[in-house]
Computed example of a mutant assay.
Amino acid sequence: MEKPAELGEFLRTRRARLQPSAVGLTSYGARRVPGLRREELAQLAGVSVAYYTRLEQGQSQNASDDVLDAIARALQLSDDETMHLRNLARPTRRKRRPAGKPETARPATKQLIEAIDGIAAVVMDRRSDVLAWNDLGHQLLAGHYEADSPYSAETRPNLTRMLFLDPHTRELYARWDEEAKRSVASLRLIAGRHPNDLHLAEVIGELSMKSTEFAELWSRHPVVNCTFGTKQFQHPVVGQLELSFEVAQLPDDSAHRILMYSAQPGTPSEAALRLLLAGTHELDSSTRP
């Protein structure tokens, strides 16, 4: 992913969604493309048309915070989109490097998620590769995978790849379209932060080739930092669940995250999670020698 091209595409998608009348401008003449023209956006942001054009074409990589904030206001960007704009507009000094040693979850992190009662927990890297999960996290999201699959780079699941390419995962989400949009929007934000991540680029490339749905969503340049909310599941074992989710960033430089799912106390969803966890314990007991 080349930042200049990404920046230009992002800005063009945001211009296209704004009509002149929505920002107090009068439209003159026929428009070949929807939304604001470059000169109209430049006028709103208080910069020259030539400067904005260079920025959109990737020829100006040292825009000040004031200029970027002015463009963000003119485009009516959200906080997440403004952060993404800054990431894309900043020059990258580091060269892309080949993938190094496979990442692993710290033992203390695995110990933490295994100690959490009644909550499905998954440790992910920034690419959404699963590095570890507790019993409930495994059974909720990927019971058709081996329990130890996260602990090898050759077998570990990737949640985004599963969402678009694994039919079992597609059936798991009662609102798959909503989950797909949320996943791509989060991935866009991460890709803007880590443009030199070769493995991340490979995941995006694979999904773009193998999933027309992913490719179409990716082309829209959605950007949202999805760290909490509610999801609906249609689990093959315990049926319907409505679960709250939270994503916690680990306080180090690993970019590892813990995704946690919980149910409101006293609800059928809480009972379903307990039933699912009891089933994993029974399975563990039955397979012991």
Results as ranks from 00 to 15, higher is better:
T155R: 06
D117Q: 13
G143R: 09
S48W: 02
T267E: 09
S149I: 12
V184P: 15
T212W: 01
E154I: 05
Q76Y: 03
E103Y: 01
Y151G: 08
M83A: 10
V224I: 11
S244P: 14
T53H: 01
P289G: 10
R94M: 02
L273E: 10
S219Y: 04
E103D: 11
W133M: 11
D66L: 08
T109L: 05
E2F: 00
Q111A: 13
S48K: 05
R288S: 14
E213W: 09
G279T: 07
D80Y: 10
G239C: 08
A248H: 14
N62Y: 11
A105W: 10
P102Q: 06
A50L: 04
D252P: 08
A108P: 06
A201F: 00
D135P: 07
G100V: 06
Y261N: 06
L165K: 03
L131I: 07
P150T: 14
S152N: 11
A89W: 04
R17D: 14
P157A: 11
W133F: 02
R96V: 04
V122N: 05
N134Q: 10
P20F: 11
R12H: 08
Y151T: 13
T169K: 08
A5K: 03
Y28N: 11
A271P: 15
W176H: 08
A5T: 09
T227D: 15
E282P: 05
L68T: 01
H256S: 02
T92Y: 08
P34Y: 07
P20Q: 02
L198T: 01
L243D: 13
T26G: 08
S254E: 14
L140T: 05
H138M: 05
L276Y: 15
Y173L: 12
G118L: 03
V224Y: 13
L7A: 06
F245R: 04
L88N: 05
V23M: 07
L68M: 08
A278I: 02
R175I: 12
